[in-house]
Lab assay of single mutants.
Amino acid sequence: SKGEELFTGVVPILVELDGDVNGHKFSVSGEGEGDATYGKLTLKFICTTGKLPVPWPTLVTTLSYGVQCFSRYPDHMKQHDFFKSAMPEGYVQERTIFFKDDGNYKTRAEVKFEGDTLVNRIELKGIDFKEDGNILGHKLEYNYNSHNVYIMADKQKNGIKVNFKIRHNIEDGSVQLADHYQQNTPIGDGPVLLPDNHYLSTQSALSKDPNEKRDHMVLLEFVTAAGITHGMDELYK
């Protein structure tokens, strides 16, 4: 796709999030870079409003799984890469995230190029959380598991539907599940690639910047598309 050509090198990323969870309002600002050749993201996020009212790991899918245009699609799968094909005009990404036995996040993001920078601007609203639950009670460990993110075409809306389940580790050794339902639709009216069913395999590492006084998260992530085999004719070339 034409959009794919915008991702040949390292691309700067800007992320802006405004959130409200159970009436606790907050903002997060992030910057870093993405390299789609390797499916690599390096980002640093800062809570610009003081202390973040929710655990950082609960925002990873909104912040970095928010820029799935940096996923590495192998050559034989490039015609299934909706995310890059929607660029530079970008796409709207909407999600509902259900935390098992707790509340939910609803998010709406616009992901697009502004100049040479890929920008992810998000509004997040969280409701029905227990004040002493795993999320508002800050009981999650500061780490992140690997996940597969399942993608299918949504021809009606000229976009994709995505769903997956995140496993958050809790300090007591148990797990907090979070079910994600995602819809992506193009902002522009140019042609986009509608994929066959496949998935993104994601690995994320969270860390801290020892010199950063503000509440923050440093993230390194690798994302690769998989799940579609080479056609038989490919094998015999």
Score class of each variant (00 low, 15 high):
residue 3 G to A: 15
residue 4 E to V: 10
residue 4 E to A: 10
residue 5 E to G: 14
residue 6 L to R: 14
residue 7 F to L: 08
residue 7 F to Y: 05
residue 8 T to P: 09
residue 8 T to S: 11
residue 8 T to I: 10
residue 9 G to E: 08
residue 9 G to W: 02
residue 9 G to V: 03
residue 10 V to E: 04
residue 10 V to M: 08
residue 11 V to A: 02
residue 12 P to L: 03
residue 12 P to H: 02
residue 15 V to A: 02
residue 15 V to F: 02
residue 16 E to D: 09
residue 17 L to Q: 00
residue 18 D to N: 14
residue 18 D to E: 15
residue 18 D to V: 14
residue 21 V to G: 00
residue 22 N to I: 02
residue 23 G to C: 01
residue 24 H to Y: 03
residue 24 H to Q: 15
residue 25 K to E: 04
residue 26 F to S: 01
residue 28 V to M: 01
residue 31 E to A: 06
residue 31 E to G: 08
residue 32 G to S: 00
residue 32 G to R: 00
residue 33 E to G: 05
residue 35 D to E: 09
residue 35 D to A: 03
residue 36 A to G: 10
residue 37 T to I: 10
residue 37 T to S: 15
residue 37 T to P: 10
residue 38 Y to N: 15
residue 38 Y to S: 15
residue 40 K to T: 05
residue 40 K to Q: 05
residue 40 K to M: 11
residue 41 L to M: 15
residue 42 T to S: 15
residue 43 L to M: 15
residue 44 K to E: 01
residue 46 I to T: 06
residue 48 T to I: 04
residue 48 T to N: 06
residue 48 T to S: 06
residue 50 G to R: 01
residue 51 K to M: 07
residue 52 L to P: 02
residue 54 V to G: 00
residue 55 P to S: 10
residue 57 P to S: 11
residue 58 T to S: 08
residue 58 T to P: 00
residue 59 L to R: 01
residue 59 L to I: 07
residue 60 V to A: 03
residue 62 T to I: 02
residue 64 S to L: 01
residue 64 S to P: 00
residue 69 C to R: 00
residue 71 S to C: 13
residue 71 S to N: 02
residue 73 Y to F: 03
residue 75 D to Y: 08
residue 75 D to V: 12
residue 75 D to G: 11
residue 76 H to Y: 13
residue 76 H to Q: 05
residue 76 H to R: 09
residue 77 M to L: 09
residue 77 M to I: 07
residue 77 M to T: 05
residue 80 H to R: 06
residue 81 D to V: 00
residue 82 F to Y: 08
residue 83 F to Y: 14
residue 83 F to S: 02
residue 84 K to R: 02
residue 85 S to T: 05
residue 85 S to A: 11
residue 86 A to P: 04
residue 86 A to G: 03
residue 87 M to A: 06
residue 88 P to L: 14
residue 89 E to K: 04
residue 89 E to V: 08
residue 89 E to G: 11
residue 90 G to A: 00
residue 91 Y to F: 04
residue 92 V to D: 03
residue 94 E to K: 08
residue 95 R to C: 01
residue 96 T to I: 14
residue 97 I to F: 00
residue 98 F to C: 13
residue 98 F to S: 14
residue 99 F to Y: 05
residue 100 K to T: 10
residue 103 G to S: 04
residue 103 G to A: 03
residue 104 N to Y: 15
residue 104 N to K: 11
residue 106 K to G: 04
residue 106 K to T: 08
residue 107 T to A: 06
residue 108 R to P: 00
residue 109 A to D: 00
residue 109 A to T: 01
residue 110 E to A: 07
residue 110 E to K: 08
residue 110 E to V: 14
residue 112 K to Q: 07
residue 112 K to N: 10
residue 113 F to S: 01
residue 114 E to A: 05
residue 114 E to G: 01
residue 114 E to K: 11
residue 116 D to A: 14
residue 116 D to G: 13
residue 117 T to I: 07
residue 120 N to S: 13
residue 120 N to D: 02
residue 120 N to I: 02
residue 121 R to C: 04
residue 124 L to P: 00
residue 125 K to E: 08
residue 125 K to N: 15
residue 125 K to R: 10
residue 125 K to Q: 14
residue 126 G to D: 00
residue 127 I to T: 14
residue 127 I to L: 15
residue 127 I to S: 12
residue 128 D to G: 15
residue 129 F to Y: 03
residue 129 F to L: 07
residue 132 D to N: 03
residue 132 D to H: 07
residue 132 D to E: 07
residue 135 I to M: 03
residue 135 I to F: 03
residue 135 I to V: 12
residue 135 I to T: 05
residue 136 L to P: 01
residue 137 G to V: 02
residue 138 H to L: 08
residue 138 H to R: 11
residue 139 K to V: 04
residue 141 E to G: 09
residue 142 Y to F: 07
residue 143 N to H: 03
residue 143 N to A: 11
residue 144 Y to C: 14
residue 145 N to T: 14
residue 146 S to G: 12
residue 146 S to N: 12
residue 146 S to C: 06
residue 147 H to N: 12
residue 148 N to T: 10
residue 148 N to I: 06
residue 149 V to G: 03
residue 150 Y to S: 05
residue 151 I to F: 02
residue 152 M to T: 12
residue 152 M to R: 08
residue 152 M to I: 13
residue 152 M to L: 10
residue 155 K to E: 13
residue 157 K to M: 12
residue 157 K to E: 14
residue 157 K to G: 15
residue 159 G to V: 05
residue 160 I to G: 01
residue 160 I to L: 10
residue 160 I to S: 02
residue 161 K to R: 11
residue 161 K to M: 12
residue 162 V to M: 08
residue 162 V to G: 08
residue 163 N to Y: 12
residue 163 N to H: 09
residue 164 F to I: 06
residue 165 K to T: 11
residue 166 I to F: 02
residue 166 I to T: 11
residue 167 R to L: 08
residue 169 N to G: 03
residue 169 N to H: 09
residue 170 I to L: 15
residue 170 I to N: 13
residue 170 I to V: 10
residue 175 V to E: 11
residue 177 L to H: 12
residue 177 L to P: 07
residue 179 D to V: 04
residue 180 H to Q: 09
residue 181 Y to H: 07
residue 181 Y to C: 11
residue 183 Q to P: 00
residue 184 N to I: 08
residue 184 N to S: 06
residue 187 I to N: 11
residue 190 G to S: 08
residue 191 P to S: 10
residue 191 P to L: 12
residue 192 V to M: 13
residue 192 V to G: 14
residue 196 D to N: 12
residue 197 N to H: 13
residue 197 N to D: 15
residue 198 H to Y: 04
residue 199 Y to H: 07
residue 200 L to Q: 04
residue 200 L to R: 00
residue 200 L to P: 01
residue 201 S to T: 10
residue 201 S to N: 13
residue 202 T to P: 02
residue 204 S to T: 14
residue 206 L to R: 00
residue 208 K to I: 08
residue 209 D to V: 03
residue 210 P to T: 11
residue 211 N to T: 14
residue 211 N to I: 06
residue 211 N to D: 10
residue 212 E to G: 01
residue 212 E to D: 05
residue 213 K to N: 03
residue 214 R to S: 03
residue 214 R to C: 06
residue 216 H to N: 04
residue 216 H to P: 00
residue 218 V to I: 14
residue 219 L to Q: 01
residue 220 L to R: 12
residue 221 E to G: 01
residue 222 F to I: 06
residue 222 F to Y: 13
residue 222 F to S: 08
residue 223 V to G: 02
residue 223 V to L: 15
residue 223 V to A: 04
residue 223 V to E: 01
residue 225 A to S: 05
residue 226 A to T: 13
residue 228 I to N: 08
residue 229 T to P: 12
residue 230 H to Y: 15
residue 230 H to P: 15
residue 230 H to R: 12
residue 231 G to V: 15
residue 231 G to C: 13
residue 232 M to K: 11
residue 232 M to R: 15
residue 234 E to A: 07
residue 235 L to V: 10
residue 235 L to P: 10
residue 236 Y to H: 12
